[in-house]
Write a protein that binds this DNA or RNA. Structure first.
Length: 805
RNA sequence: GCCGGGGUGGCGGAAUGGUAGACGCGGUGGAUUCAAAAUCCACUGUUCGCAAGGACAUGUGGGUUCAAGUCCCACCCCCGGCACCA
C-alpha cells in the first residue's frame, strides 16, 4: 500500500469539495441553521499567520461537525481591507492601495484554501468594495439622522517635524516613530459616534448572551458605570462654579482642595485671576506631550501646580479650599475635575503629601487602621462631618445628595468610563464620510441615492501638512455644489476608521450580493444571530463593543430582527514564537504556514494547532510537536491495513466501552472548544486499536468520522479507500450509548488521613458497608491502622474511601 | 497605574474539592539495520533505599477541609487590553 502523502491528497480533496459545493449555505432549507463566524482578517502583506490558523482550524472543526449533525451551516469569509498598514505600504512602494489589497487578499485566499477551511466562498465580502461600503456609509447617515454622529474638537497626535498626524501606534514612548521628534497633540474638529448613549443597553445585553465571563467582565469594566453625584464648587468672589463627579459624596467634608485637568475650560475663563498663569501655562504645555497612560500611570510621582489667586468653596462646610491643575486628572472622565479627599483616596493622598495639603479623615471603621499614615478607601461611619456624624456610608450618601440638591449645589449622577467613539481618520485608505459642508446650510448629509460615495482613485495620498486627510488635496473631488442651495461647498475629507466596516459585516454575509438593501430582512431573520463567533481576546473591548453598539442601533431603527448580534463568543489565545515571545518580523521568528503545509501537510498543522494546549490560552509554537501530529496521522493511515470484515473486536466489551467514551468525549469537547483533550482521547483510542492484530472496519470508520472535522483531508481519503463513494462530510456524526460507558469494576482508592495507601479492585456500585469491610481487611491498611483509633471513615461512592486515624 | 487572564516534570499540557503529571514532545536503554533514518518495545517528576517501601512536589507565604493544583487571604512573576494597529 502506498504511504501517506499529504500534499497529493490535500490538493485532490480541496478541489473535489469545491466541485461538489458541499459547504454552501442554503437560504431556504428544512434543516435547522447554525451561523458560525470567525473574525475576518486584515489582509496584511505578511500573509496568513499561524495564529490565524488556530482560530480558523477550530471553527472549521466545529462547523464540519455541525454539518454532520444535520445543520444548515453558514460559515463565510471576507476581508477587512481598509487600514493604515496598507496605506503606509503603498506610500513606501508607490503601489496603489487597491493593488496592494488585491494582491494580499489573493494570497490570503490561497492560503486559507490550502488549509482546507470549509468556507462558503460564494458569500465573500470586502470592506473596500464600493458595493459593500455603500452600506457602511448608509449606516453612518442613519446614525447622523438620529443625532448619534456629531462633530467635536478632539486632539490628534501630531509630529511637528514630519508635519503629519500619527496613529497611537506610531507614537513610541512619546516620540514620532519615523523621525524621533517629540509628538504633540493638535486639536481638530472630528466626527464622533455617541456610543455612550448605548452604555446601559450594552451592559444589559450581556445578560442574555453566552460570552466567557472574562469577556463580560472586561466589557462591563470598560463601560465602567458608576453611580454617585455631581457637585458644584463655587469659586470665591465669582458666579463661576466647578463641577466635579464623585462616587463618594459622603466624604465631602474631607475634601481639602480641587484638581482640574490641564484641558479644563475654567483655566482659560479664569485666566485673568490666576496670579501664576505663566507657570500654569508651562505646565499645560508639558502635559500636552504626555499620553493618558503616562499621565495616570507614572505611579506615585504626582505633578501639579496651584492656581494661585483662585479659591473654591466646599459646599458642605463652606471652607475656602485651594484649586490645582494636575495631569493625572483626565479631561474626558467625569467632568474633568475632581474633589480631593486625601484621607480616603490613595492618589489624592499621594498628591496631598507631596504638596503638603491638609488631610482630614471623615470615615471611621471599626477594626480598620485608624492610623493617619494610611488611606482608608472602604465604607464605615462618618466623623468630622458636622450634623452627619454617625451615619453609615450608604445612608450618608443618600442624605447629603438630598441636602445639596436643596441648595442647588449637587445632584445624583451616573458616570461612565466609556467615551464616545472618535470616528474620523485623516487618511486616504478608508470609507469617505458622506457629508458636505456648506457655508450657508452647514452640515449636509448625502442622500441614500448618492451612495456609495466612492473613494477617488488618486496617485498621491501623502498626508497633508495641515493634518487634514490626503483627500483635502483632491480639489476636483472635494469641491462640490451644496445639494441644498447649490452654492459651492466642500466634502468632508476625513475617512472612517477600520472599525467601521467590521462593525456590521456579519449581516452582509446573510445576503452578500443584494444591491437594494444591506441584507434582506427575512434572510437576516433566518440566519441571525450569529450562533458562535470566534476571535482574538484583543478585540474584547473595541471591535466587540463597537459592533454590538451598531447592531443595537440597527435594531432600534427596525432594520435587524434582534438586538444582540452574537449568541456565543469564543476567543483563541495567541500563538507565540518558539522562544515564547511574540512573532514579529523584526525578531525574525515568524512561522509561515505555507512552509509547514508543504513539509508536513495541512492536516498535521491543523491538528497541532488544536492539540497545542487550551484553546483560549497563549501558547508557544513547537515544531517537534507538529512532527508528533504527523506521526499520529501516519499511524491512522497504517491502521487501515488492519481493517477486517470479521467483527472480533466488536465483541470486546472493554474496547466497546472505550469507543463509546471516545464518542462522548469528542462530541462534548468540540462543542466546548476543548480540542486538545478531544484529540488526546482519539490518540488513546488509536493506541488501543494498535494493540489488536485486526480491527473491525466499523470501528475504523467510526474513528475516521470522529477525526474528520480535525483532519478533513486524510480522513476523506481513507474513507474513500475503505470503500465509500460519498464524502465523509455527508455522513452522520456518531452517537454514543450511555449505558455502554459505565464500567462494572472500579479501582477503589484507599486513603489514610488523606494519603493514598492502597488501591483495591471492587464492584462499581459497592456499598459503604462492603467497602469498609473490604478496606479494613487489606494488609496494607492494617499496617497503618494497627493500634490506632479510627475516628472517622469518609466514603465517596464508586471512587474513594478515606480512613481518619 | 487601571481592567482581564495565567503560573503544574526537561518542554506543551491533563486533572466535577477525591489516585497530581492523561495525551504529545524530548531523553535513556533495547530490537530491527552493513549503517543510518523510519518503525517497534521498555523506562522516564525529584529524592532516600539493594529492595520492599518511604519522603518531597502544582510561583511564594498563610488559612479553610477528612482531603486543596482546584476554595479563601496576602505577595511575586509573566501575558493581553488601555480607546487613531487591526
Amino acid at each position: 500500500m502506498e504511504g501517506y502523502n499529504p500534499n497529493k491528497i490535500e490538493n485532490k480533496w480541496q478541489k473535489k469539495w469545491e466541485d461538489l459545493g458541499i459547504f454552501k449555505a442554503e437560504d431556504d432549507s428544512k434543516k435547522p441553521k447554525k451561523y458560525i463566524l470567525v473574525e475576518f482578517p486584515f489582509p496584511s502583506g505578511d500573509g496568513l499567520h499561524v495564529g490565524h490558523c488556530r482560530g480558523y482550524s477550530a471553527v472549521d472543526t466545529l462547523t464540519r461537525k455541525k454539518r454532520m449533525e444535520g445543520y444548515n451551516v453558514l460559515f463565510p469569509m471576507g476581508w477587512d481591507a481598509f487600514g493604515l498598514p496598507t496605506e503606509n505600504y503603498a506610500l513606501k512602494t508607490g503601489i496603489h492601495p487597491t493593488k496592494v489589497t488585491e494582491k494580499n487578499t489573493a494570497n490570503f485566499k490561497r492560503q486559507l484554501k490550502s488549509l482546507g477551511i470549509s468556507f462558503d466562498w460564494d458569500r465573500e465580502i470586502n470592506t473596500t468594495d464600493p458595493k459593500y461600503y455603500k452600506w457602511t456609509q448608509w449606516i453612518f447617515l442613519k446614525l447622523f439622522k438620529k443625532g448619534l454622529a456629531y462633530q467635536e474638537e478632539m486632539p490628534i497626535n501630531w509630529c511637528p517635524s514630519c508635519k503629519t498626524g500619527l496613529a497611537n501606534e506610531e507614537v513610541v514612548a512619546g516620540k514620532c516613530e519615523r523621525c524621533g521628534a517629540l509628538a504633540e497633540k493638535k486639536i481638530k474638529k472630528q466626527w464622533m459616534l455617541k456610543i455612550t448613549a448605548y452604555a446601559d443597553k450594552l451592559i444589559d445585553g450581556l445578560k442574555k448572551v453566552d460570552f466567557p465571563e472574562r469577556v463580560k467582565t472586561q466589557q462591563i469594566n470598560w463601560i465602567g458605570k458608576s453611580e454617585g453625584a455631581t457637585l458644584k464648587f463655587l469659586i470665591s468672589d465669582s458666579q463661576f462654579a466647578i463641577d466635579v463627579f464623585t462616587t463618594r459624596p459622603d466624604t465631602l467634608f474631607g475634601c481639602s482642595y480641587l484638581v482640574v485637568s490641564p484641558e479644563h475650560s475654567m483655566i482659560q475663563i479664569q485666566k485673568h485671576k490666576i496670579e501664576n498663569y505663566k507657570e500654569v501655562e508651562k505646565y499645560i504645555e508639558k502635559s500636552k506631550k504626555r499620553s493618558d497612560l503616562e499621565r495616570t500611570g507614572s505611579a506615585k510621582v504626582k505633578t501639579g501646580v496651584e492656581l494661585k489667586g483662585i479659591k473654591a468653596i466646599n459646599p458642605a462646610n463652606k471652607k475656602e479650599i485651594s484649586v490645582w491643575v494636575a495631569d493625572y486628572v483626565l479631561p474626558h472622565y467625569g467632568t474633568g475635575a475632581i474633589m480631593s479627599v486625601p484621607a480616603h483616596d490613595q492618589r489624592d493622598y499621594d498628591f496631598a503629601k507631596k504638596f503638603k495639603l491638609p488631610i482630614t479623615p471623615v470615615v471611621f471603621s471599626e477594626g480598620k487602621d485608624k492610623d493617619l499614615q494610611k488611606v482608608f478607601e472602604g465604607e464605615g461611619v462618618a466623623i468630622n462631618s458636622g450634623e452627619f456624624n454617625g451615619l453609615k456610608t450608604f445612608e450618608f450618601k443618600e442624605k447629603i445628595i438630598k441636602w445639596l440638591e436643596k441648595d442647588g449645589v449637587g445632584k445624583k449622577a451616573v458616570n461612565y468610563k466609556l467615551r464616545d467613539w472618535v470616528f474620523s481618520r485623516q487618511h486616504y485608505w478608508g470609507e469617505p464620510i458622506p457629508i458636505i459642508h456648506c457655508s450657508k446650510c452647514g452640515i449636509v448629509p448625502l442622500t441614500e441615492k448618492d451612495l456609495p460615495l466612492e473613494l477617488p482613485y488618486i496617485e498621491k495620498y501623502e498626508p497633508t501638512e495641515t493634518g487634514e486627510s490626503p483627500l483635502a488635496n483632491v480639489s476636483e473631488w472635494m469641491n462640490v455644489k451644496c445639494p441644498k442651495c447649490a452654492r459651492s461647498a466642500k466634502r468632508e475629507t476625513d475617512t472612517m476608521p477600520n472599525w467601521a466596516g467590521s462593525s456590521w459585516y456579519f449581516l452582509r454575509y446573510a445576503d452578500s450580493k443584494n444591491d437594494d438593501v444591506f441584507a434582506d430582512f427575512d434572510k437576516l431573520k433566518y440566519w441571525l444571530p450569529v450562533d458562535v463567533y470566534n476571535g482574538g481576546m484583543e478585540h474584547t473591548t473595541l471591535h466587540l463593543l463597537y459592533s454590538r453598539f451598531w447592531h443595537k442601533f440597527l435594531f432600534d431603527i427596525g432594520v435587524v430582527p434582534q438586538d444582540e448580534p452574537y449568541q456565543k463568543r469564543t476567543s483563541h489565545g495567541m500563538v507565540l514564537a518558539e522562544d515564547g515571545r511574540k512573532m514579529s518580523k523584526s525578531l525574525g521568528n515568524v512561522i509561515n504556514p505555507d512552509n509547514i503545509i508543504e513539509k508536513y501537510g495541512a492536516d498535521s498543522l491543523r491538528l497541532y494547532e488544536m492539540f497545542m494546549g487550551p484553546f483560549d490560552q497563549a501558547i508557544a509554537w513547537s515544531i517537534s510537536s507538529v512532527v508528533g501530529m504527523r506521526r499520529f496521522l501516519e499511524k491512522v493511515y497504517k491502521l487501515s491495513e488492519k481493517c477486517s470484515r470479521d467483527s472480533d473486536t466488536l465483541n470486546n466489551l472493554d474496547l466497546e466501552r472505550l469507543v463509546h467514551q471516545t464518542i462522548k468525549k469528542v462530541t462534548e469537547d468540540i462543542e466546548n472548544f476543548k480540542f486538545n483533550t478531544a484529540i488526546s482521547q482519539l490518540m488513546i483510542l488509536v493506541n488501543e486499536f494498535e494493540k489488536y492484530p485486526k480491527i473491525s472496519i466499523d470501528y475504523y470508520q467510526l474513528l475516521l468520522r470522529l477525526l474528520s472535522p480535525f483532519v478533513p483531508h486524510i480522513t476523506e481519503e481513507l474513507w474513500e479507500k475503505s470503500g465509500n463513494k460519498e464524502s465523509i462530510f455527508l455522513e452522520k456524526w456518531p452517537e454514543y450509548n450511555a449505558k455502554l460507558i459505565k464500567a462494572k469494576k472500579i479501582i477503589l482508592i484507599v486513603q489514610i488521613n488523606g494519603k493514598v495507601r492502597d488501591k483495591i479492585e471492587a464492584e462499581a456500585d459497592i456499598s459503604e458497608q462492603d467497602a469498609k469491610e473490604l478496606t479494613l481487611s487489606s494488609e496494607k491498611v492494617k499496617k497503618y491502622t494497627e493500634g490506632k483509633e479510627i475516628k472517622k471513615i469518609i466514603f465517596i461512592k464508586g471512587k474513594l474511601i478515606n480512613i481518619v486515624i
